[in-house]
Amino acid sequence: MSDPGENVEAAVRPGVAPGGLHTAETPVPAPATGKPRGQFADVWAELRRKPMFWISAFLILVFLVMAAFPSLFTSIDPDQGSLRDNLQGPSKDAWFGRDIQGRDIYARTIYGAQASIVVSVIATLGTVLIGGFIGVVSGYIGGWVDGLLSRIADVFFGLPFLLGALLILFTFNPPGSAPSKLKVEALVAVSLMVLSWPVSMRIMRSAVLSVKEADYIVAARALGASPFRIVLRHVIPNCLASMLVYSTILIGSFIGAEATLSYLGVGLKSPAMSWGIMINEAQQFLRDVPGWLFFPAAFLVTAVLAFVMLGESIREALDPKLR
């Protein structure tokens, strides 16, 4: 007859069955070490497994460096050219060919990234800050404040984007005027902000409405926290994910919008360098130098796609249903 103490001891020993029989199927649990991963760590772990994230991040890094330090990509002055070499095709001296004034198309394409990136980043920051602030106020306070701000947003939301941008730019930058490049960039950025903030306002308002009655918000309110502290410490941090995704995609959209306005002649104008300006100038010489239109358009499409792909990757990483 076996000792009952042996069975009890064997029952609590990993890998040993009652009666002293060892069982290989019984796993030995590993001790818990470290702290549990937070949301950022989970999202980062998910993003690292996505090739689309790394491709888009690499392309965006290249475009940002290109906009900040164009001299790293070319040592050629984009404004210098010779009429004797105009409308030449690609060669070892001019990789993308030369335009009607004999200027190097490759150098102008590199320097053209600066205006598009700067305008889109500034416009995105302004749109997210303005729309996000109004969305937080509207969603958290509610009542007549929410109704009033929502109706104002509906007015701006109903304006056709292109028509509204043309109206603003034609008013403050009429044809024939010669304002500085900085002033025109600021006008384009402001026009994009004025017409786009209602979308970010609606996104933030919806996020605030979904979290403002959560248990942790109710607990903070019951403990006597002020509305300002609740919004700053609890509401906004839990609503930033959707705005981050929207902001990333919005940068790509604004790059295309700036190029469109410059192409139509109401945004940046020559002698400023922009992909939209180059496409406008090249359309009359498409048969002579197709690279004059193709290469700026290829850079433009690649930049827009890179930001859109990054935004989609972040959205999928943040949404557990899409993992």
Rank of each mutant, 00 (worst) to 15 (best):
G81P: 01
G102D: 01
I60A: 07
A259Q: 00
N86F: 06
I279V: 15
D77K: 06
L83V: 01
M66K: 00
P4D: 10
L87M: 14
V194W: 06
R202G: 00
L162W: 08
V145R: 06
I130P: 02
S138M: 08
T127I: 12
S247E: 06
E213G: 08
P51D: 08
P27R: 15
V28A: 12
P36F: 11
A306V: 01
F285Q: 05
R108K: 12
A214Y: 09
L192Y: 07
K321D: 13
L47T: 08
W95N: 01
W292D: 00
P31R: 15
W292S: 02
F58T: 14
V199A: 10
P271V: 06
R287P: 02
Q39Y: 09
R202K: 01
G158Q: 08
R108W: 09
C239R: 04
R229T: 14
Y106P: 01
R48P: 01
W44T: 09
L232E: 00
P31K: 14
L61V: 12
S274A: 06
P31Y: 10
D42E: 15
I251L: 07
F170A: 12
L223D: 14
A298T: 14
R108N: 12
L223I: 10
S75W: 04
K50H: 11
A153Q: 10
I76Q: 07
G15R: 13
V8Q: 09
I134F: 15
T171G: 03
